[in-house]
Design a binder for these strands. Structure first.
Lengths: 198, 198, 198, 198
DNA sequence: GATTAACCGAGACGGTACGTCACGTCTTTAA
DNA sequence: TTAAAGACGTGACGTACCGTCTCGGTTAATC
């Protein structure tokens, strides 16, 4: 099913086409700057200069700073590598371990999530994007758990959504609120509680 | 023998003392305005006007909007009413139920937490306050769980901290990220997973 | 050979050019407001509003209120109408009479000169502008005196600069310090003293 | 005629009398500070601290910054030493020479006069004080000229007021507006014009 | 000697203006 | 039509100063 068979095909583009190089340049400058000075300290003027681009060219592509940041995030994430170690315990240790590694890195990028959450409070469009992004991160865990159900490692009447919440929620909670340590020991205790015996 | 036999007697206050009425007036105006227009939409000028106070009088007391908001929050919270229904299940249903009610209310106050999290990213002082506030909210749950251990309802070798994280984390996670429903059904599923049989 | 064969061709202007309408709007609003409430009572916010312009647009053009006022003054002055009645006495009566009329008008604009003098005390840039403006006002008198020398009405070894000082100085002095009357009678007495017989 | 026979004699002072030391301390601190940072750069808070005095004690004595400054000026001036060299030319050279010396000194105090002029524009009380101060400075010149009239050095039908204006005005004018040199050469040229032969 | 009224230092207070900054839009010339 | 450059409106920021007010405490003259 091709993209072109929508009833109202876009008219053939007129005028100078948008440069794809600018797209890339803006996105990477965003990642750089946000990492350096934090998302709040990054002004759109500075960003434009860093990217060697005019502000208008940015706003022609993204309607707001935050939607740009979320796209930059997505572009940086790359395709989620499907994890399949053969048992649920291994899968989760791998996936959650990645998360631990990411959070323990000292990058300033750490303030991106808080910022997006805050802005999405008054920006429904961003809220939609943020929730989509959040769901994306749940996919591999869900896949692993479903394989676990098939293999009999996970009870067939478990509520997988709640299970995922119970795995990711405490990590996020520590990250955003308590400031408690997020390490492999914590992951083990958490799994002992939520998926005992795995 | 002087009246102030504390080891470190602070010097007697000099000059005109700060008006306690202004303290109160500012704090309550903060709660009102933040609830009405959100913490981001609340400008310090508007706040000063609403409180019937000059901006300087606010900045004399709090170095930033956020520290002020945290104080306002604390002032509004009052002493946490100790919950003790006699069993852990009842306690948790009561405490988490309160949380559910708070989150489902439609007040604009809902953006306070996201905002504080975001700002505390670049403000260590605020971060300290926020974590202190967070710990405060954990106290009643911990007390209940400890009574549960004493009564034999909770395993004595359970890691209470992780347990609390596993109860609060998923709720916060839904609130801030997935946008999933936070209701009694969710609480029940969560408890079934984390404190089975309660 | 390029179109701009001035030795120092400035680079072609880039970006959106400054609106000349805003220039005009700001200058005329400055004259209006300064006349109404005095230069000290004129806040930059009020001025911006009156001109229908943002404060930033003002500060983009002028670094301070006073340089703006000086420019406004210059813009309002227009080309000095050359006075030539045929004899020095007539010229001076015309020129100084204009000054008298200006000072006796009850406009608030009267505080402009005092204000500019005061501020130029700590602002060398403004000082330069003020002296340039002052010199401008001397030009017609000097021209008239030079014609008088040519016609033999004024002694050829008179020091014209001192002569001008002796004509303008007492008027300014009364205006700024003694508060004494500045009228045609005073002008006559002054001329009888400084340019006797004219 | 004593000060006490006004119909409503001041009641005998009750309570603690004002400290005369504070008067002196405030006045001298005013002269110091105004000389150092200029009258505009001198804040009343700084002044109070420099004088080792509370702001209230200043405002108890003077109703505004400017009236204080004018008093400080008067206190610094001391009694005008009567000049009498025996002829008008000598007197004027002495008196105007003093003025030249004062203006050529590099003290920051130089901005006092401009500031007072400017503020007196919107402050009638200050205006009165300023004009009184101005008249004070004219007294010795007038006295000298009157002696000159008696001695036949000055024409008996000269208008002394205009004469004084013509002597002081150009000096003030250069000082405040043109920035031209104020030196003995200028004084000589001026006198040659206004009091020829002296 | 007690009272009293004005003094004093310290610093809080309302009001007002300041000059700066960032966002997202608009307007120009050039490609 | 896109691009670079930068002007523009809007609106908030945190600071500074003025002149007033409010504390606790001090000093003389009066009772």
């Amino acid at each position: 099913m091709s993209a072109a068979d929508t009833p109202q095909a876009d008219p053939p583009p007129r005028g100078r086409p948008r440069s794809k190089e600018l797209d890339a340049s803006i996105l990477s400058a965003t990642l750089e700057l946000a990492a350096e000075v934090g998302i709040n300290g990054m002004s759109m003027d500075d960003l434009a200069q860093r990217a060697g681009v005019s502000k208008a060219s940015i706003y022609r592509r993204w309607p707001s700073k935050e939607l740009l940041v979320i796209d930059a995030l997505r572009s940086a994430m790359g395709p989620l590598d499907a994890v399949d170690t053969g048992d649920v315990g291994g899968d989760l240790r791998s996936i959650l371990g990645d998360l631990v590694a990411r959070f323990s890195s000292k990058e300033r990028m750490n303030d991106v999530l808080p910022h997006l959450i805050e802005v999405s409070t008054h920006d429904p469009a961003l809220r939609v994007e943020l929730e989509a992004y959040t769901q994306l991160r749940r996919v591999p865990i869900r896949a692993s758990l479903e394989r676990g159900v098939a293999r009999g490692e996970v009870s067939p009447d478990a509520d997988l959504d709640t299970l995922i919440d119970a795995l990711l929620g405490p990590i996020i909670y520590r990250r955003l609120l308590t400031g408690g340590p997020i390490d492999t020991a914590f992951i083990e205790r958490l799994m002992a509680l939520v998926v005992p015996g795995r």
